[in-house]
Design a protein around this nucleic acid. Structure first.
Lengths: 166, 166
DNA sequence: CCCAATTCTATTGCGCGCAATGGAATAGGG
DNA sequence: CCCTATTCCATTGCGCGCAATAGAATTGGG
């Protein structure tokens, strides 16, 4: 008797599967909000700052690959960080297509004030670091699987290389 | 020697903790998108339909409690479902404050076409039902913890009951 | 019964997330 | 060296998510 439980309504069970991730993300976001508000950041802006604190001067493209976001999301977000005085956006002199994002002194200084955020989130989660680390591994396994699936599936991947056939 | 690993940069480690949930949610959403597109639904609309397929005639408030969303999100979403011909929005006769959402025949019929979605997502995740079920439990544990934390924390909870002191 | 407090939905404004489009700069085959 | 792909960023439009506000209906203390 392997998987012969009740043939539970698929559309009912499913609500519990992916919806748990969905709703947890929202609650996590609401937990971050009041903390990040003090820094004048939204959660996606905070993520961008994390990358910049690791590696200053990245291009928009590199930032997008790291965060899995495209320019349609990043361009306005970075403009807001710029007008908040945290970063500068400048074209690369060698390759004018690239826009490099560099931290201002205020942007670097914000790092110290951000250090109290992760411990606060950890406390709110009510978990040990080990438990969260373990959960992270499991979630990343699914993430990588979804990522691979998305790469192999897309209906019409432009396919051809160079030269078009007219 | 308990937690005496490298005192890894908190702002680096953290990026991996919550960011894994954040990015997995987005990839999951991108996996759902092409499937739901065939049904003419977005993911949040799909969630709303899941609730309605379970319990027709719910109020906007009940829907919001189930999905953890407020009227600012639900009102326009439900209006779009209505103009797509899937639901009707009507004031409750007994209590005119309430708006009840009921399925149209087209809304009920869509359920059959939605049944192929969960299996497709399961396949894309590359996991067994058991593994996902287990992961769900862990995520929900954190969700409940965050939920409790959010209820007890909010800086100024309006506090007073009835009667104001002028 | 009356009036103030509460409940419930709608509206507005802002910030993502993403698809689609456009345009400037670079790279690479001929 | 051209001329065409390609790369990279910006822009537009739409749909959430959420805070804040407003307004109509209901409730409950006096």
């Amino acid at each position: 008797m392997p998987t012969t439980r009740k043939p539970r309504d698929v559309l009912h069970l499913n609500e519990q599967l992916c919806f748990s991730l969905y709703s947890t993300m929202h609650l996590l976001n609401r937990t971050y909000r009041p903390l990040l508000e003090k820094l004048g950041l939204t959660y996606p802006q905070y993520l961008a700052m994390l990358v910049l604190w690791e590696e200053d001067g990245v291009t928009v493209k590199a930032l997008g690959e790291r965060l899995l976001l495209d320019s349609g999301t990043l361009t306005p977000l970075l403009k807001r960080l710029e007008s908040a005085g945290l970063v500068r956006r400048e074209r690369d002199a060698a390759d004018e297509r690239l826009v490099r994002i560099t931290l201002t002194p205020a942007g670097r200084a914000l790092r110290a004030r951000a250090e109290c955020v992760p411990p606060a989130i950890l406390a709110a989660s009510g978990c040990t670091v080990e438990a969260l680390q373990d959960l992270k591994e499991q979630v990343l396994t699914i993430r990588d699987q979804l990522s691979a699936h998305l790469e192999h599936e897309p209906s019409p991947p432009p396919a051809p290389k160079r030269r078009k056939a007219p």
